[in-house]
Simulated scan of single mutants.
Amino acid sequence: MGLAPTFRTRMRRVPSVLPGFGITLGFALLYLGLLVLIPLAAVFWRASGLGAQEFFALATHPRTLAALKVSFGASLAAAAVNAVFGTLTAWVLVRYEFPGRRLLDAVVDLPFALPTAVAGIALTSLYAATGPFGALLAPLGIKVAYTWTGIMVALVFIGLPFVVRTVQPVLQDLERDQEEASASLGASRLHTLVRVVLPTLAPSLMTGFALAFARAVGEYGSVIFIAGNLPYRTEIAPLLIVIQLGEYNYAGATAIAVLMLIIAFVLLLVLNLLQAWGRRRLGGR
Rank of each mutant, 00 (worst) to 15 (best):
R215N: 08
T166H: 07
G131D: 02
L282Q: 11
T130H: 01
F7I: 15
V107M: 09
P5N: 09
R10F: 15
T207Y: 10
A257V: 12
Y250W: 12
L171I: 04
Q244A: 15
G20V: 06
G33F: 03
H61M: 00
G221E: 04
A181E: 00
A66T: 11
R195I: 00
E180V: 06
E175D: 14
G150S: 12
A138Y: 09
N82M: 13
L211H: 09
I226N: 03
G252K: 09
G86Y: 13
A212E: 07
T147A: 05
G73K: 11
I256M: 12
A28L: 15
V217Q: 03
F85V: 12
V70W: 10
P238H: 10
A83P: 06
A117W: 01
I38K: 01
R13H: 09
L190G: 11
I121C: 05
T166M: 09
L273R: 14
G252Q: 05
R189T: 11
L205K: 08
V156N: 03
T130R: 12
P139A: 04
N229T: 02
R195Q: 05
L185D: 01
H191N: 08
R101A: 06
W148D: 01
G218I: 01
I236Y: 08
G228P: 04
A129P: 02
I142V: 15
Q53I: 09
R176D: 01
F133A: 15
L93E: 07
A135Y: 00
A129D: 13
A253V: 11
A251M: 11
D109R: 08
Q168G: 00
